[in-house]
Design a protein around this nucleic acid. Structure first.
Lengths: 199, 199
DNA sequence: GGGGAGTTGGACTATACAGTCCATCGATCT
DNA sequence: AGATCGATGGACTGTATAGTCCAACTCCCC
């Protein structure tokens, strides 16, 4: 079974492995990343992998948690700052810039994992679904901020709007990474914001 | 190397293998589907797989072509019928009904393949990008039909609108399959159509 | 009926991979 | 100094899987 690290050294080792595994899985996918790849990339040993994660499933779960925390952390932070439409545009522009800087590769780590794992493993599916839920809550928070400032109609259906916005993000990221063209993400986000502005 | 079947028997065998491989890959993903799985599901032999497809890469390419033809065929057909907003709503309702009937599993075959393969294989990425391009052209055709009937402004940016619409479809399908809830697809499509109506 | 081409069956190989196991290291506490 | 316990190294095993190979079968044509 997997062991929680107790010492500083152990925590650092575990963190190093998770970060490297997340990067490898982001590039090559879960099935395309072997434990030997992770071992080589972290100059760790087999026993460390099994000591901290139990098995490959445990490592993938750790990667899901890691990416969820990373992406959601950034999104909660950025969306929490939104006060007006300009702020929302800046949030969208930042996402496009980040993707563009990566050469439109990789897309959304959570979205890519969700596409690959949702149909094959129920535990992973639930974890990723919860990540999306938290993302929607962050979006809903920004929309409420706009409502409070009378920039968005107070009777707008926030539930529906947050879902369409997150769908635009995920769909835009998928199209961008498939075409290697970040303008497709930009078009999707521009469309989503135009839709919000007219709601 | 892969051989094109010459006889009726050969064409049927090849088609049977591709259809079964597409189904298996749709459920378990490319990496989760072994050639032995395909062989067992089609009661064929190893030599048939290598005779018709050369290697696993060739089989996956055949599955991409098969799914592209299937999905695009249905989409071109349905979108080609659209004459007014009600027609577009019916197209969206049909997609939701299809997904709902599947228990919101699987999502879009093209989208799932794109998420998994775009970053790891350039040939697959290009083929899937072309499938998305054709899909956008089908959507653009429907929007032009609406423009001709003065239901959509003649100066609307069709390029941008088709991309946001396809992003809504793909994002909605991803959220629906991750949450196992087809109403997320419905919300995404409703949002997209509302946005189109106000453009 | 003989021969050739397309098609098929299935044994076989090589290897990559997940997972196991045990010995050892090293810090901390007594 | 010795005991304890978390952390580490790395050899080893079993199996799943991609890919190879060759013999055999089935048509069809001559």
């Amino acid at each position: 079974m997997s062991q929680v690290p107790v010492t500083d050294q152990g925590r650092e080792t575990r963190a190093r492995i998770v970060a490297a595994a997340a990067a490898l899985i982001g590039e090559r996918g879960v099935a395309g990343t072997s434990l030997d790849d992770v071992r080589a990339a972290t100059s760790s040993s087999k026993s460390q992998l099994y000591h901290y994660f139990g098995d490959k499933h445990g490592l993938v779960q750790a990667v899901i948690d890691y990416q969820s925390a990373l992406v959601l952390g950034a999104q909660v932070d950025a969306l929490g700052r939104v006060r007006d439409w300009d702020g929302l545009e800046r949030w969208a522009d930042t996402m496009v810039a980040v993707i563009d800087a990566r050469g439109a590769r990789g897309g959304c780590p959570i979205g890519t994992l969700a596409a690959a794992l949702s149909d094959s493993d129920e535990r992973f599916r639930v974890a990723l679904s919860e990540a999306f839920d938290r993302w929607r809550q962050a979006i809903a928070g920004a929309l409420r901020a706009l409502q409070e400032r009378r920039l968005l109609a107070s009777d707008a259906d926030l539930e529906a709007l947050t879902t369409t916005t997150l769908a635009a993000i995920q769909g835009g990221l998928l199209l961008a990474k498939t075409s290697r063209d970040s303008t497709q993400l930009k078009a999707a986000l521009d469309g989503a914001i135009t839709h919000l502005r007219s709601s």
